[in-house]
Every structure is written in structure tokens, then in C-alpha cells.
């Protein structure tokens, strides 16, 4: 699973700390997500997508969608 968190975060002028505070996780979790070292729970994926006003499918890409 891939994600566009880093790109969307830069587009929305959000720091990793800002995004972490908005979705209620630690900054390290955002770092791990951006590096692709962690696949989030459905709730966290939904929360992150809501921060960017997008759907889960637009933020998280499965398989060869990238």
C-alpha cells in the first residue's frame, strides 16, 4: 500500500506535528506512514483523508495503483 500523505501535507502547508495533532497520533506515526513502514488502521486512514478533504482511495493507493 502506498500513500500520498507527504505530498498532500506539503500542499496544505502542514508539518508532521500539525497532522499528528489533527488526527490524534504521535509524530513518529506520521513519519512511519510517509516512509511506508506502517499501514494505518481504517480509522486513522479515514481521519487523515478527512484532514485533506479527500476520500481514502485518493490518499491511500493499493497495489499497482501508483
Amino acid at each position: 500500500m502506498y500513500n500520498r500523505i507527504k505530498e498532500l501535507r506539503a500542499r496544505n502547508n502542514l508539518t508532521q506535528d500539525d497532522l499528528a495533532n489533527k488526527v490524534g497520533v504521535r509524530r513518529e506515526t506520521i513519519v512511519f506512514l510517509e516512509k511506508g513502514k506502517y499501514n494505518p488502521s481504517l480509522k486513522l486512514a479515514y481521519d487523515i483523508s478527512r484532514v485533506f478533504n479527500m476520500t481514502i482511495e485518493e490518499v491511500f493507493l493499493f497495489g499497482n495503483e501508483e
Binding site: 506535528d17 495533532n21 486513522l44
Partner: peptide, 12 residues
């Protein structure tokens, strides 16, 4: 930093 001391990643 107003973040939780433990979240889903740290628990995992």
C-alpha cells in the same frame, strides 16, 4: 506536544 503518549503504532 499535545500528542498521546501511546498511539496505534506504538501499541502495535
Amino acid at each position: 506536544l499535545n500528542q498521546p503518549p501511546e498511539d496505534e503504532l506504538s501499541k502495535k
